[in-house]
Simulated assay, not measured.
Amino acid sequence: MKMFGKVDVGGGLSDFWAYIREPRPHRWAVWGVALALTWVVFSGVEQYLIPVDRPKAQIIYFENWTADRSAGEIRADWIARARETTRRNARKRAEYQRFADSLGIEYDSTEADRVTRETLGEEAAEAVKQRPAPPPRSTLAERAARGPQPEITD
């Protein structure tokens, strides 16, 4: 005997709906009590069994510069931070350039190189000029035209 051989979900839902629709004297009161009891249980579990440590507000005062700095010192600090950010961006751009070159994707960084040269000066221009040329890549058609290559074994 197969108990769950063929499950009739539609029939079960229609029986449940017919049972709910039958007029009973305390139907709405029972529904109200059931929903209220369910809400009390879930809210109790949420509040007491699964505690959430909410962060407390903190005010932290710190000073990272002296109050009597001159406008020139402030400007020099801004420029130093801008140069560091530009160096970091240039390093990332060089990594992306190498990645694009390895995939054979054309990557134009002339505008970014111009901004780097303006920010960092000739030091960056020399670094850009010394960037190695991408290795030549053969296309699938060229490799197919060469034919099968002998395997190299050590």
Rank of each mutant, 00 (worst) to 15 (best):
R83S: 03
R146T: 10
R27A: 08
R146V: 08
K6V: 09
E73C: 07
R87N: 10
R27Q: 08
D154V: 05
V115W: 11
I105N: 09
V7P: 00
P135R: 08
S70W: 06
Q58E: 04
E126F: 06
V30M: 00
T119I: 09
E95H: 15
A80H: 09
A90T: 00
R146H: 07
G72H: 11
V9S: 06
E73L: 04
W17M: 15
A71W: 09
G5M: 09
P134D: 08
E84G: 09
I50M: 03
P136M: 03
S14P: 01
S14T: 15
G5P: 01
S43Q: 10
G121M: 14
E63Q: 08
R88N: 15
Q97D: 10
N64H: 04
L103Y: 04
V128Q: 04
A145Y: 14
R114T: 08
K92H: 15
K92V: 10
T85M: 13
T110V: 15
E111C: 05
I79P: 02
W65C: 03
R27S: 10
A82Y: 08
G44I: 01
W31T: 02
A18D: 12
L13D: 11
A57E: 07
R137G: 03
M3R: 07
P134R: 12
F4I: 02
N89S: 15
S43D: 07
I60R: 06
A67C: 05
P134L: 05
R88C: 15
E95W: 13
R93H: 09
W39C: 04
E122P: 00
A124K: 00
A141N: 07
I74W: 06
L37R: 01
Y107D: 15
E63Y: 08
E111Q: 12
A127R: 01
E123P: 02
P150Q: 10
E106P: 01
N89I: 10
E122S: 10
A90Y: 00
T86I: 02
Q149G: 14
A71N: 09
G104W: 00
R98Q: 14
G104M: 01
A29E: 06
N64V: 13
A36L: 10
L49F: 03
H26I: 00
Y96W: 12
A141V: 08
L140D: 15
T110A: 14
G104F: 00
G147N: 07
R21F: 10
R81V: 11
Y96Q: 11
K129P: 00
E84A: 14
L120G: 00
D154Y: 15
Q47W: 10
F16Q: 14
A133F: 08
D113Q: 13
A76M: 09
G32Y: 00
P25Q: 12
G121S: 04
W31M: 05
S70V: 03
Y107N: 13
K129S: 11
A67Q: 06
Q130P: 02
T38K: 04
A133Q: 06
G44M: 07
G104R: 00
G11W: 04
A127N: 05
A57Q: 07
